[in-house]
C-alpha cells in the first residue's frame, strides 16, 4: 500500500491554495483532514500529482455571529463535538458529529473536508441541507456564497469550481420554537451511515402549529439530499398529529429510490428512510414543543 508519487505544497492562506489550484488545474488536490482522501490515495483510487495541504490555514474556535454560526473550513469534528458554543447554537450539528467515525477521524476530519468530499452518507452535509447552511467558496475572483441545497451535485462532486476552496460553512443558529433530530442507522457503530435522517421543525409562537419543516437524507442517493417538499407539506399549518407524521414519513421514503450495496438493499434503505424520518420528525417536534414551553 503505497500512494503514487505527488508533489507536496503547503498553503498557509486561501489565496495561496487557490494559486496552486490555478497553476495545476485538475492534477492538484486539496488535503484537509485527509481521512477520506488518504485511503483513496493509498489504494490508488485517486492520483493527484500535486497535493495542496491547507491545514496551516487553521481555524478559530466556533463563535456565533448573530443568527449565524460560521465554521471555518478547518474546524475539526472534534471541536464540533466538544464545543459548548456548537451544542448551544446548532445542537443538530453537535448531535450528528457523535456519529462520525471514531476519535481519530474526528481529531483530523474537518467541516470543509466533509462538505467538499460530498460523500452520499455525510452527516455534516445532511445537517447543512436541513438547516439550509451557506457555503462560502474562496476563488480567484474572491468569495461567493453557495446555498448548501445547491452545493451537492452528484457522487463526490460539488458546485465548487476547479480553482475554488471551501472557506467556511455558515449554519443558522437555533431559533425559538425550533426543534431538531438526527437519526442514523449503521451496521456497526461508528461506520458510514446506511441511512441517516436529520430533521428540523419550526413551530408557530403557539408552540403547536408547524410553520416549517426540513428533512435531509443521507445514504439514499448519489449525494446527500433534501427530502421531497411535497411529502412534508401536509404537516405545515397542522399540529402534526402522529398519523400525519407517519404518512409524511412514508411519502418521503416513497419519493426516494436508493440503490443497494454490500450493507443493505435499496428496498431496505427506503424502509429505513420511512422509520427514521418518522422518528426524526417526532423527536424534532417534541423538542420544538418543549422549547416553546420553556420559552
Amino acid at each position: 500500500m503505497v500512494c503514487a508519487p505527488f508533489e507536496y505544497v503547503r498553503a498557509g492562506t486561501f489565496d495561496e491554495a487557490v494559486g496552486v489550484l490555478i497553476e495545476h488545474g485538475e492534477d492538484a488536490q486539496l488535503l484537509a483532514g485527509g481521512q477520506s482522501l488518504v485511503p483513496m490515495l493509498a489504494l490508488r483510487l485517486a492520483r493527484p500529482t500535486v497535493l495542496v495541504d491547507i491545514n496551516d490555514i487553521g481555524a478559530l474556535p466556533p463563535e456565533a455571529d448573530g443568527a449565524v454560526l460560521p465554521l471555518p473550513t478547518l474546524t475539526r469534528h472534534r471541536v464540533l463535538l466538544d464545543s459548548p458554543v456548537v451544542a448551544r447554537e446548532v445542537p443538530l450539528l453537535a448531535d450528528c458529529v457523535r456519529h462520525i467515525g471514531n476519535v481519530r477521524v474526528r481529531n483530523r476530519g474537518t467541516v470543509g473536508g466533509s462538505m467538499a468530499h460530498a460523500d452520499p452518507t455525510g452527516e455534516i452535509a445532511c445537517v447543512a441541507l436541513t438547516l439550509d447552511a451557506q457555503v462560502v467558496a474562496h476563488g480567484p475572483a474572491g468569495r461567493r456564497t453557495i446555498g448548501a441545497r445547491d452545493f451537492f451535485v452528484t457522487y463526490l462532486t460539488t458546485a465548487l469550481e476547479p480553482a475554488e476552496v471551501l472557506a467556511e460553512v455558515r449554519f443558522p443558529v437555533l431559533r425559538p420554537g425550533q426543534g431538531w433530530s438526527f437519526q442514523e442507522m449503521v451496521r456497526r457503530v461508528s461506520d458510514f451511515a446506511v441511512v441517516a435522517v436529520s430533521a428540523s421543525v419550526d413551530l408557530e409562537p403557539d408552540g403547536a402549529t408547524v410553520r416549517a419543516i426540513d428533512v435531509a437524507l443521507a445514504g439514499v442517493a448519489d449525494r446527500p439530499v433534501l427530502a421531497e417538499r411535497e411529502a412534508l407539506a401536509p404537516l405545515l399549518g397542522t399540529t402534526a398529529a402522529r398519523d400525519l407524521v407517519a404518512s409524511a414519513a412514508r411519502s418521503v421514503a416513497d419519493a426516494t429510490s436508493p440503490e443497494g450495496d454490500v450493507h443493505a438493499s435499496g428496498a431496505y434503505r427506503r424502509r429505513l428512510v420511512d422509520v427514521l424520518t418518522r422518528r426524526a420528525i417526532t423527536e424534532a417536534l417534541d423538542r420544538a414543543r418543549e422549547g416553546s414551553i420553556a420559552a
Partner: peptide, 27 residues
C-alpha cells in the same frame, strides 16, 4: 450478526476493512 464476505460472481466486494464488519467495543 455482522460479518459477510460478499462475492458477486466471484468478485469480492468486501475487500475494504471498512466494509467488513468485525465487532468493535460498542457493538
Amino acid at each position: 450478526l455482522l460479518e459477510d464476505i460478499v462475492l458477486e460472481e466471484g468478485n469480492n466486494v468486501s475487500t475494504l476493512f471498512a466494509n467488513y464488519l468485525i465487532p468493535n467495543a460498542l457493538d
